[in-house]
């Protein structure tokens, strides 16, 4: 008799698969800017973001996805950023958020 099927499945397309995701590029970004790893996901950056007020750009979300190895669309999303720097003024962890934007744009253009 096979395993009982309770009818629950994990949708492969939606799950973040940390067995498969390549964290190399994320580690490279963290190596160039160690504080990238120190984000506490408070959302202060997104709350204050000039671009996020007008579009569905969410800086906190995109950079969190990058830390998980989910790079698809990250480069395109970061193009919405106007590099105004407001996020950097509010970040409680003192992260050079504009620098994160620029690193993502430099390193993840292929995704």
């Amino acid at each position: 008799m096979g395993a009982i099927n309770f009818g629950y499945t994990v949708s492969a397309a939606r799950a973040i698969d940390l067995d498969r995701n390549d964290l190399g590029p994320a580690r490279q970004i963290a190596a160039e800017m160690p504080e990238f790893a120190a984000c506490i996901a408070c959302g202060g950056c997104t709350a204050t973001c000039t671009a996020g007020a007008l579009t569905n750009f969410n800086f906190r979300m995109v950079q969190t996805l990058v830390r998980r190895g989910e790079y698809a669309g990250a480069w395109r999303e970061m193009n919405k950023c106007m590099l105004c720097g407001k996020c950097r003024l509010v970040c409680p962890r003192g992260i050079n958020t504009r620098g994160v934007v620029r690193l993502i744009k430099r390193k993840l253009g292929d995704y």
Binding site: G43, C45, A47, N58, M61
Partner: peptide, 12 residues
């Protein structure tokens, strides 16, 4: 006041 509702992923 402004914040991000981080559990929803949208500014509020």
């Amino acid at each position: 006041i402004k914040a991000e509702d981080t559990l929803v992923g949208r500014p509020m």
